[in-house]
């Protein structure tokens, strides 16, 4: 199987390890991820004003490229924010042909001459894992189950809301948790999993982010979590980098992308998974479960 993916700017910078671990884990499962030949920033946040079509140009330009130049019906995203923005813009123009026409006209094309016609499906990589490959199939491929590892799946906002584009039940998502169970981990659950991490306030007002992550990390730790697992590069930044900066958190929790933990369970190499690029080093925890000691994975529990 061959999948075209839209990386997004952050996957090319501070989230390189997400991309590298996704490519490696998917390759292990027999799926090749190949990058779109051309793409631009998606715009990150879906514009919520009814008339601000200028801000829809970025996502629609990406979808137009997928449809018209690469002739694909589906594009896979890694980043939750890209997923959300591309999906919402796609929905907007599919439901409103007049707006699509305006956007196409601005891009100097129309639906018979290179313009976007609305045929692309925007899919998050987690959906590929759940719906196309299947968690059962993934479970069968696990070499070293993450036995006894207590992980807290954190979803944040952009995978779930608005419900029209969400990939799981908005109030009680299980997609990352189910994947973690397939990998053999123990899943810690808490309603805080769907609360915002503080998002872009990480630029303008870190105190808002600190307040958010103290609550999220505090709840996860009180339930016994040893690590957080997530899919969004901005959540990763806030929960990893900002957590490490937050002086009030005495015992920080390491943060993984789900693809990194897939790689660990598949026995892939530490360097490939970018486990050295975290602010809170997750390797001591992994060593505890025997990672990279072939044949000894799985914490001995009584």
């Amino acid at each position: 199987m061959d999948i075209k993916y839209y990386p997004g700017c952050t996957v090319k910078t501070s989230a390189r390890n997400y991309e590298a671990s996704a490519i490696a884990a998917l390759r292990y499962l027999g799926v090749e991820l190949s990058e779109l030949e051309q793409w631009n920033c998606c715009g990150v946040v879906h514009t919520l004003s009814t008339d601000d079509l200028m801000k829809q140009l970025a996502p629609i330009r990406v979808l137009k490229h997928v449809e018209q130049c690469e002739e694909r019906e589906e594009v896979v995203t890694l980043c939750d924010m890209c997923y959300n923005t591309l999906s919402q813009a796609n929905r907007l123009v599919k439901d409103d042909p007049a707006k699509l026409k305006t956007v196409n006209t601005f891009m100097e094309c129309d639906d018979s001459h290179g313009g976007y016609t609305g045929t692309v499906r925007v899919v998050h990589l987690l959906q590929v894992l759940r719906d196309t490959i299947g968690f059962q199939a993934i479970k069968k491929k696990v070499k070293y189950p993450l036995r006894g590892m207590k992980v807290f799946p954190y979803y944040g906002c952009m995978l779930l809301r608005p419900g029209e584009v969400g990939i799981d039940t908005p109030e009680d998502p299980t997609i990352i948790g189910d994947l973690m169970r397939a990998l053999g981990a123990e899943v810690i659950d808490d309603p805080v999993k769907i609360e915002c991490c503080g998002s872009h306030h990480t630029v303008g007002d870190r105190s808002i982010v600190f307040e958010r992550i103290e609550r999220i990390i505090g709840r996860a730790r009180s339930k016994g979590a040893e690590a957080v697992v997530l899919s969004c590069p901005l959540c990763r930044f806030n929960l990893d980098t900002r957590q490490q900066e937050d002086r009030t958190i005495e015992l920080p929790l390491p943060v993984f992308y789900y693809t990194q933990l897939m790689g660990v369970a598949f026995g892939l190499d530490e360097a490939v998974l970018g486990l050295n690029e975290h602010r809170i080093d997750p390797r001591p925890l992994l060593r505890e479960i025997g990672y990279q000691k072939k044949g000894e994975y799985g914490r001995i529990t009584t």
Binding site: N40, C41, G43, M54, K55, L57, A58, R61
Partner: peptide
């Protein structure tokens, strides 16, 4: 040095 590039709307 040029943070405003993050304001690009890809209008071309």
């Amino acid at each position: 040095y040029y943070p405003e590039i993050a304001r690009c709307v890809s209008c071309n």
